[in-house]
Write a protein that binds this DNA or RNA. Structure first.
Lengths: 232, 232
DNA sequence: TGATCATATATTTTCGAAAATCACAAGGGG
DNA sequence: CCCCTTGTGATTTTCGAAAATATATGATCA
């Protein structure tokens, strides 16, 4: 088990089919902004870029289409999905619905292992921030992995495959917007404290308070990226 | 514009790429039960069946994977997703969350055109039932199209692309279970009356009543297909 | 000039066959 | 007798080139 090369997500290494690898690589480059919103995804270019044939590439792209990162038009190829306030609003709306329900179920059903998972994820996030000082910005991919893991840990006990999948997909979709807001961000200690606070309320099974906090947390990205009007 | 051949969904006719066509055809055959839950989707078989090459077929299958109708395992091909009480429970849970929120937004934002759309869809469904007597069973594909159109019309005004897409996908996923319950179904007049009742409450913008009715409506499939325990 | 159409070029999409991988059966050793 | 290895056939996956389609270029005509 060797470390993956720079910039290549480890998931790509373990992909046991080129189509999967293609999907992972393209997704990664879209999320990190190397492939900008609206960019044409020419098959020839991509094939050279990743050294993967046209067939598996196109298959990988097809998968990403249904995940909302790519749009594909009939005989006119694929493009990276555009970003817009409208879209972030939609993502946030959907996330709120999904996560509030998942949280409700998790609080109702969660067992000791669930609680332990939350604390573990929180701890890892905290350690990372301590170690990397204030450069912890979410732009750093491995920090974001921990951040996602934390939010996922809050919901795992919900017992719904679909809610969890939706959460994961929507989290990724929001990443492109979150990247923008990483600059100009408060300090690490505050960031961790906010998450710990949320975790505490959840572990205390205070449903209403937890939901309110989570909702506000989700809205914060929207508020930050498009400060104009952030209603509903 | 000629009528599509028997058993071939019209969407397939207008598909301007073989991959799309493949996705539509396979989806259709899965939903109608011609491809049973758990069935192996061998590329060679499918290629013969639909007279489509391996490349576009596989691309079509890849799309359906992210839509929950197919599962694909690394070097081991694709299978039709299994059905289970567990799964129907999950679908229903997700549908409830999505539709209640979409309904809330639609009632808040709906304009005259939205109201008109609901009445139009209801009318078409009613006419169909009048014309076809009690053989209207949802098993009939074109009736189900009208049924889906009605439920979609209730939500269109919600203004969220993602909520509408999720609704559509989940409706389709539930179709495989609904087919089972079509036998042993009350008479058509009652069916239409129930839907008219729901529409009335929605047009009157009675949020709470509407949501309660819609929730019960969604739960009915679960109750019918797996009568055992239908809790939560 | 501006618009329309034909031609050429670039891209996407699809095919048919090769390569890689898996599943199963037969044989050999403990 | 069971377990592990090895070989064979079937299946998935991928490649490289051909076909189909879109896009750009430039010429012709009003």
């Amino acid at each position: 088990m060797t470390a993956p090369a720079h910039g290549i997500p480890e998931a790509a290494a373990s992909a046991d089919t080129l189509s999967e690898r293609a999907a992972v690589l393209v997704e990664h480059d879209i999320l990190t902004g190397q492939l900008e919103p609206g960019a044409r995804l020419g098959i020839v270019d991509l094939a050279r870029r990743y050294d993967i044939g046209a067939t598996p590439l196109r298959e990988g792209l097809s998968r990403l289409v249904s995940r909302g990162l790519i749009v594909g038009i009939g005989q006119r190829g694929f493009r990276v999905a555009e970003v817009s306030r409208e879209d972030l609003l939609d993502i946030t709306r959907m996330r709120t619905v999904v996560e509030l329900e998942a949280l409700r179920l998790a609080i109702a059903n969660g067992d000791d292992a669930w609680e332990a998972g939350i604390l573990a994820a929180l701890h890892q996030m905290q350690r990372y921030v301590e170690r990397h000082g204030d450069q912890f910005r979410e732009g750093a991919e491995d920090f974001d992995r921990l951040h996602k893991a934390f939010h996922t840990s809050l919901l795992t006990a919900c017992g719904s495959k679909r809610l969890l999948t939706a959460h994961s997909d929507l989290y990724d979709q929001a990443y492109r917007y979150r990247r923008v807001m990483m600059r100009g961000f408060e300090d690490g200690a505050e960031f961790v404290a906010a998450h710990r606070n949320l975790a505490d309320r959840i572990l205390a099974r205070e449903l209403d308070v937890s939901q309110t906090m989570l909702k506000a947390h989700l809205a914060s990205t929207l508020k930050f990226v498009y400060p104009a009007q952030a209603r509903e």
